[in-house]
Design a protein around this nucleic acid. Structure first.
Lengths: 266, 266
DNA sequence: GTAGCGTTCATACGCGTGTTTCAATTCATG
DNA sequence: CATGAATTGAAACACGCGTATGAACGCTAC
């Protein structure tokens, strides 16, 4: 309204952004071609390069639009809570500060619950462009939250904390990106509509143990023994048939099939 | 030696398989082109279609060769342990049965530690072909392990178990696929070489809490309250500025930056 | 009304992909 | 040695991709 389209009667820009966001959510960056985008937006192929300059610039616009506010709120929330609790925060609370703004934006503004899926995609997309975008734009707040976690979990060496955070975030993003997520949420709260805060608490309570689990606990040595015991079982039974390519016997373990199993069985 | 190459003096097939495996590990299915593969294998472009018929058939050969034995051992290990412990197994043990054969094959046979990375890739690759391959070939054993977990965690509703398993596997695969993993392992055991069983136990002890965490615990309601309290903080401070695209202020939260932060800081 | 800017449109370029074709080569067998 | 099947080789195919070009259109302002 103000700067760019003084003349012209086009919401093409907006439609392109929306189409891009959708296709990115559905299939990730690589699977989202300019021809698909423009077709979905009802625009010409050249419109993208006219309005944004390139495919990457388009995507960057989408990401910036959606993620900047989210992370500003996260950072701000962390600062406020740190001021109010000089005694220090526990890890679960810090974790919550990563989640709460996301959920607020998710069902607060436009685009509704798709926002969570976008979050999942952007964190798990393998495209180099997406990766480098995240690394460039998110470094400072990353450090801030790392420090917050480190203060909340002083017993954890920094290496171990890094490992666990990596682990937790991978799990979370893989979770949110999947289209199964929606069904899962729906199936857990079978019948009555689940409270948003309750769902939030559920997710946090799943991730929290990854961070708060004791480090170097005695139980671990027991576990090692048990593992070695299991190892002997396998060693006895198979013993390396060396070069015998097994071309049959293809009844194996299948990825996310867990969910459907769980759903149809009860 | 036996059936296919009665004439001809070619290990081209084998070299193609090796090159494919490597490139898949390094960049996933989409990033791995036939021209890269054949160049790396020192073979002609047409060799792939001659020996395997298509790119997908090549990939399928690689996967079958590597994963069939793994999952046969997993299944077998589960069966044996179930027979020996009629009283039932706990979740951590069942989890171990998914890991132990993988680690055996990893440092047992050829291709060494790359096997773990291949495992990670194959579970997190977004390509539809890889996904459908897993779903087709792994369904039965998936059900078997789901039942085993279900028996080990009777307090968990099947929906919740499905959610948690999905969660745990996503985390694990995202973990193994990253090239960060190797550095992380190295950095954790700074100096002395870490025992394989110990590393195994570490990984299991990280995933285990996801499954064994109590369901519907009273702590969760506390968490809900805390979350809502946090929510008020954010609500007060930002309050929907509606249509104000923030084109600046790009200091945000960055993905796997945790690790490097953790590594360089101490 | 016409000049000029913003926008849309059809089209084409160069590139990389998986796949196909067909001639050249290799080599055990008759 | 010659036959013929197995294998390799170089080139081309059709397709989809991101990008670039230049003409046509719509509208506002002089």
């Amino acid at each position: 309204m103000s700067t760019s389209q003084r003349h012209g009667h086009s919401d093409t820009r907006k439609r392109l952004l929306e189409a891009t966001e959708w296709l990115f959510i559905e299939g990730g960056y690589e699977a989202m071609s300019l021809r698909h985008i423009t077709a979905r937006a009802g625009a010409n192929l050249a419109a993208v390069n006219y309005h944004f300059g390139s495919k990457e610039a388009l995507m960057q616009e989408v990401l910036t639009q959606r993620l900047d506010r989210l992370n500003r709120e996260r950072l701000q929330l962390l600062s406020v809570c740190e001021q109010e609790n000089p005694g220090g925060l526990d890890a679960t609370t810090v974790l919550g500060m990563l989640f709460v703004p996301a959920f607020r934006l998710s069902h607060g503004s436009t685009s509704g619950p798709a926002f969570m899926r976008l979050l999942g995609r952007v964190y798990s997309d393998p495209s180099p462009f997406i990766r480098s975008y995240l690394q460039e734009h998110y470094r400072p707040i990353s450090g801030r939250f790392f420090e917050a976690f480190s203060r909340a979990l002083p017993a954890l060496p920094r290496h171990e904390l890094g490992l666990r955070l990596h682990f937790a975030l991978k799990a979370l993003s893989g979770m949110l990106a999947g289209e199964d997520m929606q069904e899962l949420i729906a199936s857990i709260s079978k019948g009555e509509a689940i409270n948003d805060a309750e769902l939030l608490a559920r997710l946090i309570s799943l991730i929290s143990p990854i961070l708060t689990a004791p480090f170097g606990n005695p139980e671990q040595t027991q576990l090692i023994d048990r593992v070695l015991q299991l190892d002997h079982h396998t060693a006895v039974t198979s013993e390396e048939p060396a070069a015998t390519p097994p071309h049959e016997a293809r009844d194996l373990l299948g990825d996310q099939q867990w969910i459907k199993e769980g759903r149809l069985a009860s």
